[in-house]
Design a protein around this nucleic acid. Structure first.
Length: 245
DNA sequence: ATCACGACCTGGAGGC
DNA sequence: TGCCTCCAGGTCGTGA
């Protein structure tokens, strides 16, 4: 496999998994944790194109298969064409010491979003609402699609400065983030091109997006044409009428 | 310290 | 057909 791999652990770390049984799967933000009956857990981030799938051991390995863990006559495979993903082994109980996990804020769905804390964070910053929602240190788990969706739902302009966020707007934003993520999960996730779930199925949520990828089409609330802009290098979609600046 | 930008990668889509 | 450019769900390092 050579040097061109996704971020993967040294073989010595992977060897700690030999004989282990995966006992449960957890998630914090965009990171998955696969606990085992040993003193180690598997940490996975799928990046943009990562997949974690169970295959029969006899199935051919597709290109960009970076990690293979044998499971009897089956295999757990980590496949990632763009190599933006991560696959690592962490000591049990030391998960929060891992640099990727240490900086994460509370998970968006794990418990109710702390609105006063969100408001306080917003007051201290000079960036945009879009950047705030995408900042994994503030709330973990919201990606670029759902940032646009949540801001539309909360009727907030992505370019609005965070320190101007009002308490009612923060409340709307917190509710919108949860609503958008739960809706996406109900619909099996958003497949634009690559995403498939653990069983290999595409998600249907792209059919239900309000604004993301819908520039020039009518806002579902007010029929104004949705606009696309670029904020910090990321595509951003919004309604210029009903998302107040 | 905070913020915005480019880099990191591959592959698919569309123009010519 | 083929070659080119642009675009993509994320994060990280850099320099202002």
């Amino acid at each position: 496999m050579g040097l061109h791999m996704a971020r993967t652990p040294p073989r010595a770390a992977l060897r700690k998994l030999v004989g282990a049984q995966i006992t449960r799967v957890r998630r914090h933000g965009k990171y998955l944790l696969l606990d085992t009956d040993r003193e180690v857990a598997i940490l996975v981030h799928l990046g943009m194109t990562g997949r974690l799938r169970i295959h029969r051991a006899a199935d051919p390995r597709v290109a960009h298969t970076h990690v293979v863990l044998g499971l009897g006559d089956r295999e757990l495979r980590f496949i990632d064409a763009r190599r933006f993903g991560q696959f690592d082994v962490v000591a049990r109980g030391k998960e929060r010491d891992h640099p990727a996990l240490a900086v994460l804020g509370p998970d968006a769905l794990d418990q109710a979003i702390d609105v006063p804390a969100l408001l306080a964070t917003a007051k201290d910053k000079r960036t945009t609402l879009k950047a705030l929602v995408l900042d994994q240190r503030v709330i973990a788990g919201v990606g670029n699609i759902y940032a646009s969706e949540a801001l539309w739902r909360a009727r907030l302009r992505p370019t609005q400065r965070t320190h101007k966020l009002t308490a009612p707007a923060a409340q709307r934003l917190a509710a919108a983030i949860r609503e958008v993520l739960e809706r996406a999960l109900d619909n099996g996730g958003t497949t634009l091109s690559d995403f498939v779930d653990a069983d290999g199925a595409a998600g249907e949520n792209a059919d239900y997006l309000w604004v993301y990828g819908r520039a020039g089409r009518p806002c579902p609330r007010c029929k104004t044409e949705i606009r696309r802009s670029v904020l910090q290098g990321r595509a951003t979609y919004f309604c210029p009428t009903c998302q107040t600046p």
